[in-house]
Amino acid sequence: MSSSTRFPNSLEAHAAASNLSATSSGLDVRLAARSGRLATHTSGLAAEYVQGNVAILPADLANDFLRFCQRNPKPCPLLAVSEPGDFRLPELGADLDLRSDVPRYRVWRHGELVDEPTDLREIWRGDLVSFVLGCSFSFEHALLADGLPLRHVQQGRNVAMYRTNVATRAAGPFHGPLVVSMRPLKAADAIRAVQITSRTPAVHGAPVHLGDPALIGIRDLARPDYGDAVDVAPGELPVFWACGVTPQAAIAAARPAFCITHAPGHMLVTDRLNRELDRA
């Protein structure tokens, strides 16, 4: 199965598939995923609500993964951790079921991607610990509210994501490259984006790189490792943020016998408000 995942290429197709929009609530999005009405990416949906990356691992790996997140807070900002076997996270939503409320999951066995289901109830286990990590889709609302254009949102696409040559700090078996998301911006807009996102470290914070992608090991912006490519127009800079898909690279390197993640771009949308994460 290819590491890149393709999605509808227009806002109209995206909205029509789920009857959701930027004004939907986090609960609206979760219920749509739970019922099977939403199986595509969540970029541009429920703009006021915090979105999260998901990693679900057996309890005997949970401490190592927790340390990996603590050592790499930029790509892995922890929002919540469950008790073993508990599919609820009341601090993120009163009506929240980790087995069904992500539009699409990825199931990994020994580091290999084996399935992309939309529901986990048949394979859920009592020893599974769930981690929810901050997502850049949350800070996009602040960028859009400030008038900064985001091309992938305009085009109804998933954000482009790339593996870099920047190593993460290992913990136990978990190690691998930093994964970044990219948004093209004019120089003045990029400066403003740095100012805005630096206030939200819980959802990756300020960019990790601006400009030449080759300096962080990215050879071709037109070929993202995850998500959808967008053009970088003349006069624009590619701006790179740490990405919550980084744990998937670490999980692939660790090769656990069994674990689950979200499919890139298919986030858990919570009941927390983005403005609660603003440090300023």
Results as ranks from 00 to 15, higher is better:
L143C: 09
R6G: 06
Q154F: 00
D271G: 05
H204Q: 15
H175Y: 05
L38M: 13
H152N: 05
D231N: 10
S138C: 02
N63M: 02
R223Q: 15
W241V: 12
N9R: 08
A17W: 00
S43Y: 09
R275K: 13
R34V: 03
F68M: 08
R255I: 09
G147Q: 09
D28I: 10
G156T: 03
L20V: 13
L89W: 11
G111H: 11
R30M: 01
S21V: 02
R99T: 11
T40S: 07
R163P: 10
V232K: 01
N63R: 12
A202F: 01
G134M: 06
L215I: 14
R199M: 13
L92D: 02
D86A: 13
R121L: 03
V179D: 11
A39F: 04
A167C: 03
V159L: 11
L128F: 03
A16E: 07
G126L: 01
D97G: 06
P213Y: 10
K74D: 10
A39C: 08
R30S: 03
L120D: 07
H209V: 05
A170D: 05
S10M: 04
N9I: 04
A253G: 05
L66D: 13
Q195V: 10
V50F: 00
G265I: 09
G44R: 07
A142G: 12
V245Q: 04
W241E: 14
T118A: 02
A187R: 15
A142N: 12
R34Q: 10
Q248D: 12
S18K: 07
T5H: 14
F240S: 10
A171V: 07
R125D: 04
I260P: 14
V239R: 07
P238I: 01
Y105A: 01
A170Y: 04
P201Q: 03
K186G: 11
